[in-house]
């Protein structure tokens, strides 16, 4: 892994700390109220205007099983995926941090709130445990449409 591949953006969702490879995040956006999009899964909050492009918004809080708060002015992370950009709502953006391979536990024995297929591992930093999430996989695997019949 090169220097830049080891850099992660640390953010918080609920009480927990998460981090994603810095390269998978295009930018941090200012909060704007998403416009609802009908017939989508509950954690798909809506769409926003990112400089003329219409981008979907995923609420990582509901997605990761935390309680959804009603519109606190939190930042969006704009991420690139193979199927286009998508924004995610997090509670706060903390810092950029480099994790060495030794710090990362690839197969953590503890159960995390997120699914294995987009879990990179868990990193230890001083006294914190940070869950490393492969944002691209997480966002790419999703089918946001609600299954019909609901």
């Amino acid at each position: 892994m090169t220097e830049s591949e080891n850099k992660f953006l640390v953010f918080s969702v609920g009480e927990d700390l998460y981090a994603s490879p810095l390269l998978s995040i295009r930018e941090v956006l200012e909060y704007q109220i998403p416009k609802p999009m009908p017939n989508m899964v509950h954690y798909f909050t809506g769409v926003i205007n990112v400089r003329g492009a219409i981008v979907g918004v995923i609420d990582l809080r509901t997605k990761f099983g935390h309680e959804a708060k009603n519109w606190p002015r939190t930042p969006f992370l704009l991420c690139d995926t193979a199927r286009g950009a998508i924004a995610t709502i997090v509670d706060s953006v903390d810092r950029v941090q480099t994790f060495t391979e030794e710090q990362i536990e690839r197969h953590p024995p503890v159960a995390t709130k997120i699914e294995q297929n987009y879990l990179i591992g868990v990193a230890k930093s001083s006294h914190e445990l940070i869950t490393l999430v492969d944002m691209e996989k997480l966002l790419n695997e999703q089918e946001y449409k609600k299954v019909s019949g609901e």
């Binding site: 999009m37 009908p38 017939n39 989508m40 219409i54 199927r83 286009g84 790419n140 946001y144 449409k145």
Partner: peptide
């Protein structure tokens, strides 16, 4: 619309 939301039911496209 981006591919990840384009096939949404009843939606033809978006605009600003």
């Amino acid at each position: 619309l981006n591919e990840n939301i384009e096939s949404s039911f009843g939606i033809l496209g978006g605009t600003i």
